[in-house]
Design a protein around this nucleic acid. Sequence first.
DNA 1: CGAGGCCTTGACCGCGGTCAATGCCCGTGG
DNA 2: CCACGGGCATTGACCGCGGTCAAGGCCTCG
Lengths: 190, 190
Amino acid sequence: MIYKDLSAYIKRTVSIADEELSHILSFFKKQTAQKNELLLAAGQTSQRTFFVVGGCVRIYFKDEEGQDSTRYIAFENMFATALVSFITGQPSLEYIQALEASELLYITHEDFNQLRKKIPAWEKFYCNYLEKAHVNTSTRLLSFTTLDAKERYRQLLQRNPDVVKRLPNKIVASYLNISQETLSRLKSKI
Amino acid sequence: MIYKDLSAYIKRTVSIADEELSHILSFFKKQTAQKNELLLAAGQTSQRTFFVVGGCVRIYFKDEEGQDSTRYIAFENMFATALVSFITGQPSLEYIQALEASELLYITHEDFNQLRKKIPAWEKFYCNYLEKAHVNTSTRLLSFTTLDAKERYRQLLQRNPDVVKRLPNKIVASYLNISQETLSRLKSKI
DNA sequence: CGAGGCCTTGACCGCGGTCAATGCCCGTGG
DNA sequence: CCACGGGCATTGACCGCGGTCAAGGCCTCG
């Protein structure tokens, strides 16, 4: 059953009645994505929050020269959404892309917000999600402002080795915000 | 009345009954700080969330060499807290410091969390606070990963000119995460 | 088998950091 | 009231990290 992992994830995060949980789950729909498929282009407004059942998805944006900068990578049992756009209601600067052939569940932002109004436990879940996102983003900000390229790579190897093992250099470099060439040189030195 | 601005701020953010609001306000205590006074040293655990009535406060951390990196600056009518530590309950990596002689209101993290459990509107307020924090941190991350020093300075001038006008170069440089010398050179060029 | 994408390696260079000298402003005490 | 000292800002000299450009090798897929 494809909803099992999502169900378990929600139960782990907040305490919730079974009927409420199944009500929530009923708004999640199945979606599959091919490798490299774009799930949200920047500028788009009607949007979805994804739960990764299998595969892998990233959030990224482009700078003026069209270079990617990857902000977040979601593997199995993780949520992925263009959160800033979700919060502000503005068109997104962030893109969402499948990095592998992926099996996903999604809920539209509209349904998500309706549920927040009706089910306090879901509001609580959202609040918890925001907390995690903030800690994550702050940690990232700390890396960029205090560490050089080599130290950021070491930290990634230690804290999130799957990113390095599972994904091509191109993506890893974009996640560390360094060029592919620099990453290649770092790898050969360590 | 010193609570007037805080009261107005909360009312602007969430809808709340008057008696609930005054209950919340009763947990905020007055505190004054001298210029440069440290309100929270990194490593400390018992903590406070501040509301700036007058003056100015910053959140910052230090890297290995002891250089500051300023993460957030709060002027009048803004909240300031070491949010990551608040969320995780871990000792803070972030310092809080008054940049001017300041008049503040504070609530302890313990009281803050008690109120979240009792008053749904306060939970909602917290959720809204997290949303703002996330947008802010994400925007900052975007600047650091896509803009060079000059462009970050321009952006700051445009979006938050008070920081440049009101605070010494030293702090502005730390907020932009560049050296004081580089900021000085940028200013002379623009 | 050929083409295109990804990784590696070398050459080069520019942004921004460090160090040091100097100037300026301001608070404090003789 | 002036002299001094300390903190902040400016400017120059220097240099290293990491980016760009280009060439070459390898793997995969049509």
